[in-house]
Amino acid sequence: MNTRPETLIPVIGVITDVRLDTPDIKTFRVVTPDGKKAFDHRPGQCAMLSIPGVGEAMFSITSSPTNTEYMEFSIKKCGCVTEWLHQAEVGQQITIRGPYGNPFPVDDEFVGKNLLFIAGGVGLAPLRSVINYCRHYRSKYGTIDIVYGSRSKEDLLQYREIIEEWATDEGINVHLTIDREQENWDGHVGFVPNYVKELGFDTNKTAVLCGPPIMIKFTLEGLRSLGFEKTQMYTTLELKMKCGVGKCGRCNVGSKYVCKDGPVFRFDELDELPDEY
């Protein structure tokens, strides 16, 4: 028997809760069969989930490391693995391996800073981990602003948590927006990048952007025009992944592997890489 440690061999995870968050995103709670967390992680890191015979796919761990009981994943239905997961019930076992990737610098560069989180759609998943981590260690950070947008009210991920917990915290400002007017919505209407410009943030903040590439592009431009430097803005990249450990050769941008050197990058670091993401 080859008994060397092997990261590609997963462990078993049990789905203990499934929440329909939006029409196409479900949030899954996962623990090991003996009821523990499968492994520790840092905010922004990911895990490979799989169903044998269906496939493996990478997801951000959306729960905060400060949650010592379970991990959560918010998963958007879009292909084989994700569709299979969407029909899974509580008690279903899956496999899980990780953690993979680098975390957000919550214990160094973020400390003492005012934080501005900007997310679009399922892009909230990785940010939720950071936001809840920062809420847990609240005194280590300055003000927290959260701008979050989706197509419609129904498409806003973790709506209840945002309204009931984040928005009621002192020192946290939540700015929600949806793409088009709809009934029973009296909040802001418009795309995230425009909303960010309208809100006109002070540059004394560290910004974190997560969402579809087009949203990132225009939000970045907006923040730049407000005077933000690339060195004070972070984002995450998403490329096709198989191994998660920089060996299968799939997720590189230039000499960096997104699974290992990312997915978290500061915008000035991205400038060093070829434009292929």
């Binding site: 092997e6 590609l8 061999i9 462990v11 078993i12 076992q93 496999t95």
Partner: peptide
């Protein structure tokens, strides 16, 4: 071959099939 799985109902069994070369 890297590993094997057996599934029964909602349960999964992971088998490490690696052999010493």
């Amino acid at each position: 071959d890297m590993m094997a799985f057996k599934t029964e109902g909602k349960n999964i069994e992971i088998n490490d099939i690696r052999e010493e070369s």
